[in-house]
Computed example of a mutant assay.
Amino acid sequence: MKRLMNRLDALLEALYHTRHRRELARIRRDRHDLLMLLVHADALGIDHPAAGLLLELRPLLADDFHDWHRRMGLSHSPLDCPRCC
Protein backbone atom coordinates (compact mmCIF):
# COMPACT_ATOMS: atom_id res chain seq x y z
CA MET A 1 0.00 0.00 0.00
CA LYS A 2 2.83 2.39 0.88
CA ARG A 3 4.52 1.70 -2.46
CA LEU A 4 1.28 2.49 -4.30
CA MET A 5 0.91 5.77 -2.40
CA ASN A 6 4.51 6.73 -3.22
CA ARG A 7 3.91 6.04 -6.91
CA LEU A 8 0.67 8.00 -6.85
CA ASP A 9 2.42 10.88 -5.11
CA ALA A 10 5.19 10.86 -7.71
CA LEU A 11 2.64 10.77 -10.53
CA LEU A 12 0.65 13.69 -9.12
CA GLU A 13 3.80 15.72 -8.53
CA ALA A 14 5.00 15.07 -12.09
CA LEU A 15 1.58 16.03 -13.44
CA TYR A 16 1.53 19.26 -11.45
CA HIS A 17 5.07 20.22 -12.47
CA THR A 18 4.37 19.40 -16.11
CA ARG A 19 1.26 21.58 -16.23
CA HIS A 20 2.86 24.51 -14.41
CA ARG A 21 6.48 24.20 -15.52
CA ARG A 22 6.60 27.63 -17.18
CA GLU A 23 5.00 29.40 -14.25
CA LEU A 24 7.31 27.69 -11.75
CA ALA A 25 10.36 28.58 -13.86
CA ARG A 26 9.24 32.23 -14.00
CA ILE A 27 8.75 32.34 -10.22
CA ARG A 28 12.17 30.76 -9.65
CA ARG A 29 13.80 33.25 -12.05
CA ASP A 30 12.06 36.22 -10.39
CA ARG A 31 13.24 35.11 -6.96
CA HIS A 32 16.78 34.64 -8.23
CA ASP A 33 16.68 38.10 -9.82
CA LEU A 34 15.56 39.61 -6.51
CA LEU A 35 18.39 37.84 -4.69
CA MET A 36 20.90 39.11 -7.24
CA LEU A 37 19.55 42.64 -6.87
CA LEU A 38 19.83 42.49 -3.09
CA VAL A 39 23.35 41.08 -3.19
CA HIS A 40 24.65 43.61 -5.73
CA ALA A 41 22.50 46.60 -4.73
CA ASP A 42 25.34 48.61 -3.20
CA ALA A 43 27.38 48.27 -6.40
CA LEU A 44 24.40 49.60 -8.32
CA GLY A 45 24.08 52.60 -6.00
CA ILE A 46 21.08 51.35 -4.04
CA ASP A 47 21.40 51.53 -0.26
CA HIS A 48 19.80 48.89 1.90
CA PRO A 49 20.50 47.79 5.47
CA ALA A 50 21.44 44.18 4.71
CA ALA A 51 24.16 45.00 2.16
CA GLY A 52 27.00 44.11 4.50
CA LEU A 53 25.45 40.78 5.41
CA LEU A 54 24.98 39.79 1.79
CA LEU A 55 28.59 40.40 0.78
CA GLU A 56 29.41 36.80 1.60
CA LEU A 57 27.09 35.64 -1.18
CA ARG A 58 28.84 37.60 -3.93
CA PRO A 59 31.50 34.98 -4.73
CA LEU A 60 28.84 32.27 -4.84
CA LEU A 61 26.73 34.22 -7.33
CA ALA A 62 29.59 35.60 -9.44
CA ASP A 63 29.06 33.08 -12.24
CA ASP A 64 25.39 34.08 -12.61
CA PHE A 65 26.06 37.81 -12.58
CA HIS A 66 26.71 38.26 -16.31
CA ASP A 67 23.45 36.58 -17.32
CA TRP A 68 21.57 38.56 -14.70
CA HIS A 69 22.81 42.02 -15.66
CA ARG A 70 22.15 41.28 -19.34
CA ARG A 71 18.60 40.14 -18.53
CA MET A 72 18.07 43.33 -16.50
CA GLY A 73 19.03 45.44 -19.53
CA LEU A 74 22.49 46.56 -18.39
CA SER A 75 24.79 46.30 -21.40
CA HIS A 76 27.96 46.41 -19.27
CA SER A 77 28.61 45.22 -15.76
CA PRO A 78 28.41 47.92 -13.09
CA LEU A 79 31.01 45.98 -11.12
CA ASP A 80 34.72 45.87 -11.79
CA CYS A 81 34.89 42.13 -12.08
CA PRO A 82 37.29 40.50 -14.55
CA ARG A 83 35.00 37.56 -15.29
CA CYS A 84 32.22 39.72 -16.71
CA CYS A 85 32.02 41.57 -20.03
Score class of each variant (00 low, 15 high):
H66N: 04
S77F: 04
A50V: 05
P49M: 03
D63L: 07
L60N: 10
P49L: 05
H48K: 06
E56Q: 12
L57V: 03
F65R: 00
A62I: 02
L61I: 05
A50L: 15
R71Q: 14
F65K: 00
H76E: 13
G73D: 10
R70F: 04
R70I: 14
L53D: 13
H76G: 06
L61F: 07
W68L: 03
H48V: 07
L55R: 14
G73E: 12
G52R: 02
F65H: 04
D67W: 01
G73L: 14
R58Q: 15
G73A: 14
L54I: 08
L54H: 03
G73V: 14
L54P: 02
W68S: 01
H76N: 10
R70A: 13
D47C: 06
A51W: 00
E56I: 15
A62T: 06
L74G: 09
A62E: 06
G52Q: 05
H48I: 05
P49C: 03
M72L: 08
R70G: 05
D47I: 05
A50T: 08
E56L: 12
A51P: 00
H66C: 11
D63F: 07
D67I: 01
R58N: 08
H76Q: 13
H69I: 12
D63H: 10
F65T: 00
H48N: 12
H48Y: 08
L55A: 11
R71F: 07
L61Y: 03
R71L: 09
H66L: 08
E56Y: 05
M72S: 13
G73I: 14
L61S: 02
W68A: 02
P49S: 08
D64K: 01
H76D: 11
E56C: 09
H66W: 01
D67M: 01
L60D: 13
R58C: 08
S75T: 15
H76C: 10
H76S: 15
